[in-house]
Design a protein around this nucleic acid. Structure first.
Lengths: 121, 121
DNA sequence: GCACAAATGAAAATGATTTTCATTCCCATA
DNA sequence: TATGGGAATGAAAATCATTTTCATTTGTGC
């Protein structure tokens, strides 16, 4: 297992905290940083494991990485412009817990996202 | 532009109204239907254009197609053995609707899955 | 039968992501 | 200061879903 290359995180921050692996790679190249695409992917994966960044998916399936606050939250994403709002998921937490218990599951986690068209689009 | 091959739609229905292009293709092959992967993709695209099916994304980015108006449900998945239980998500539906409204989003959909360890594992 | 448009599918192209593997770097210890 | 091993790196190849290309087949109206 490898640790994250700090330049990757700093580039993601500079990119507005929202970019794909390929974009981060291209950005670093353009800025004259010497790094391999492999290292970018590895660093991002490691940041995801450490819960320092979030992964979402563009409509075309490309993964986008984003810095996130440490509190557990969910996302409301605009399918058109990509605007993202972090939202509370209290109801979800309870739902997940109840459903898991009802079916005898333990060590449960969950994912939940809402997507639609924001008011500006 | 091409029209949808009816066997693709019927296979998607038989698959529980929820499958990826590759899965539909493999399913048709296994059932002895003669069809090309290209036609499967083209048919699904056409069904999406006609709003007969929905596209979502798996966590790994693979596109999954779902019959619109199909009874909507969620999954409880065992991380260890893969067993999957279909569950009701009434609470989620309401949560999604409320959150979307609160932030001025429209045409909203959502994804939600719970994963954990089942009682057998 | 004939021409022409639509449908089909094999194979190649594309693009993101992952894997492989040899090399380089770091660092603790002899 | 050597040296040995583990971690980090990146080029190149492999993988996998999806799209494109293009030649062939099929269907339909005339």
């Amino acid at each position: 297992m490898s640790r994250s290359n700090p330049r990757v995180l700093s580039t993601l921050e500079r990119a507005g905290g929202f970019a794909s692996a390929q974009e981060i790679y291209r950005l670093m190249q353009r800025e004259g940083e010497s790094i391999g695409l492999t290292t970018v992917y590895r660093s991002l994966q490691s940041l995801v494991n450490d819960k320092i960044v979030d992964v979402l998916r563009r409509d075309d399936g490309e993964a986008i990485y984003r810095l996130c606050g440490d509190a557990h939250h969910h996302h409301l994403v605009c399918k058109s412009c990509g605007e993202t709002v972090e939202i509370e998921g209290g109801a979800i937490e309870k739902w997940a817990r109840v459903m898991a218990e009802e079916h005898g599951f333990r060590d449960v986690g969950h994912t939940a996202e809402i997507f639609g068209i924001c008011s500006k689009c």
